[in-house]
Design a protein around this nucleic acid. Structure first.
Lengths: 146, 146
DNA sequence: ATATTAGTCGACTATCTCAATCGACTAAGT
DNA sequence: ACTTAGTCGATTGAGATAGTCGACTAATAT
């Protein structure tokens, strides 16, 4: 039940872009440094998020990446799906990539996997990057002023 | 967020052994045929479950595998953990293999991953193979008598 | 006893995915 | 025009995954 490194990096990068949403475009280098993500790998991840419509970018000096829409309108689920594909533990209960298995009718387990999928999806869909940015600010404030 | 094939096969095998708990020992071959799992691969999986204490076995003719305790006392979570390791999406929120990350204090995401882990664990821990066997019987009955 | 059945064990392999890297290219600003 | 910074495709190395194999050991039936 693991999240890939790519999915983790993507959500961390999106969080960074959300926390500093007001600053405008951020360089790959800055995001990479702030979140400890290999620069060249992050480049690839941001590009993928851009192609999926969650980021926009500007080239040249003063360039960088920025969110295509406000953090309140991007859920964590969307980002994870772009990087790692369906949230479902197995394909027979995937909403986005459903693939019925032959023993379908008697399978007592299907309902359980669906329950798991739904629980995960519910959490990740209701949580936006605005929520995450807010939590991040609170955590930081608490660690500075104890 | 995927379940490995091994985890899936293991839960299917445990389900078969639970549904037919009253029959006593089942051959690898029978479980393999009933659930469509490669025999030689299943052998390995059952052995692993045996070593973890969930199965017992008898050799020779009339031999086979059977549950070490009633299906009501084995949760799906236990079986998945034996095959795939921790349920947590990332190690910093794993109960069984906790591994704190350096950016811990400011990480706004940790709470979210913990929420996901807890939701998944709650479902898989409360569900036993008796529940699964029962659902399986109901599903079968419904498909026979429509 | 011995032949047969069936689980045990360790090693092995092929394929895939993941994480990461690289080089060359293109666009934007100064 | 020069520098900065994102774009794109290809490639790579490591490790996990899914699956196989051969030889061994224990139990049963005849």
């Amino acid at each position: 039940m693991r999240l890939s490194t790519k999915g983790e990096y993507a959500s961390r990068a999106m969080l960074e872009l959300s926390v500093r949403y007001a600053e405008g475009a951020l360089h790959i280098r800055d995001i990479s440094a702030a979140q400890g993500i290999p620069e060249r790998f992050l480049e690839q991840i941001l590009l993928q998020l851009k192609r999926a419509g969650y980021l926009r970018s500007r080239k040249g000096p003063k360039g960088g990446y920025f969110l295509a829409k406000p953090p309140s309108r991007i859920s964590v689920a969307e980002v994870i799906r772009v990087m790692d594909g369906p949230l479902a533990p197995i394909d027979c209960v995937s909403v986005t990539a459903h693939d019925p298995c032959p023993r379908e009718p008697y399978c007592g387990l299907k309902g359980l996997w669906k329950e798991v999928r739904d629980a995960v999806a519910e959490i990740l869909e209701r949580t936006t990057f605005e929520d995450m940015a807010e939590r991040s600010r609170v955590a930081k404030a608490r660690s500075v002023t104890p």
